[in-house]
Simulated scan of single mutants.
Amino acid sequence: MEKISNVIMRPLERSIYLKPYTMHFTQNGQEKSWDLLGVHDSVAIIIYNITRNVLVLVKQFRPAVYLGSINIEDRKLDCPIDIVKYPPENGITIELCAGIVDKTLSLAEIAKEEVLEECGYDVPLNALQFINQYRSGVGTSASIQTAFYCEVTDDMKVSHGGGTNDELIETVEMSVDEIRKYVTQKGVVVNSPPSFLFGIYWFLLNKCSKL
């Protein structure tokens, strides 16, 4: 996964996932503008394996996270990024199983598909517990993410997962103690998105004491 090379920054090219906009508006008599991105809504699933008492998470390389680790003066367009100075593992994140809403299916059906594709568990629809919906990236996109929770067993594991052909995703398992330590790290940036932290704290608050 960390075998990343030939990293080059270029201006935005044609994208099927991102639609850039600039919104112009007047607020309290002052003319303003704000750059925005139109993106797909998404689902995220907290998965707990009750056979071995571990949370099932995913690990993947996120270019945006990698970019965030690079000093601004080294982000020159059409110039190779120094991967010795900036190791690609800086862009590796731990996240909840998740995926975009790009099909004419219910949110639960999309969540079920993502659990199977990314983590290899075939879960029944009625095993997916709706948690909440919230805005993601309020400064740029404000897309809606829908969070679910499900419990799985080893018997539900039907494949290694890993995502679709154009993805490179690894499954990560963490005990409750391990996840507590991970989300309470001090002095380091937790390489996980806010939705991950929301999901983990929801699990610790609502499920951990009942398992």
Score class of each variant (00 low, 15 high):
I50N: 12
M174R: 11
P80A: 02
I179C: 13
S136N: 15
N165M: 12
T184W: 10
G162N: 05
S5N: 12
V172E: 08
E31G: 00
D166G: 05
L67N: 07
Q129A: 07
R75Q: 09
E109M: 00
Q30T: 10
P20E: 02
Q133W: 00
K207R: 08
P11F: 00
V190D: 01
S192Y: 07
L197P: 04
K186N: 07
I131D: 05
S5F: 11
V172K: 12
C79F: 03
G187R: 06
V123E: 09
K59M: 09
M156V: 10
E109D: 03
T171C: 10
K181I: 09
P87T: 02
L211I: 12
G163D: 01
C97N: 09
T93R: 14
V190F: 01
K85F: 11
I46K: 06
G91P: 10
T184F: 09
Y17G: 14
G163A: 06
I16Y: 11
K157S: 05
G38R: 03
A108L: 07
D102W: 00
W34F: 06
V101E: 13
V65L: 15
L197R: 05
V190S: 05
F61W: 15
A64T: 14
D41Q: 05
F130Q: 10
L116A: 03
M156Q: 14
D155K: 15
T93F: 09
S143D: 07
T164H: 07
Y134V: 02
T93M: 12
D74C: 06
V176Q: 15
L128P: 15
E89T: 00
R180V: 11
R10A: 04
G120F: 04
S15M: 10
G163R: 04
V39W: 02
E170Q: 12
D155V: 14
P194N: 02
G68P: 04
G199Q: 01
G120P: 04
E13N: 06
A44L: 06
A147T: 06
S141Q: 02
R75H: 03
E2A: 10
D41C: 03
E167R: 07
A44R: 04
T146F: 05
A64K: 15
F203D: 05
L204D: 13
D35R: 03
I100P: 09
T104Y: 07
C208S: 15
I92N: 05
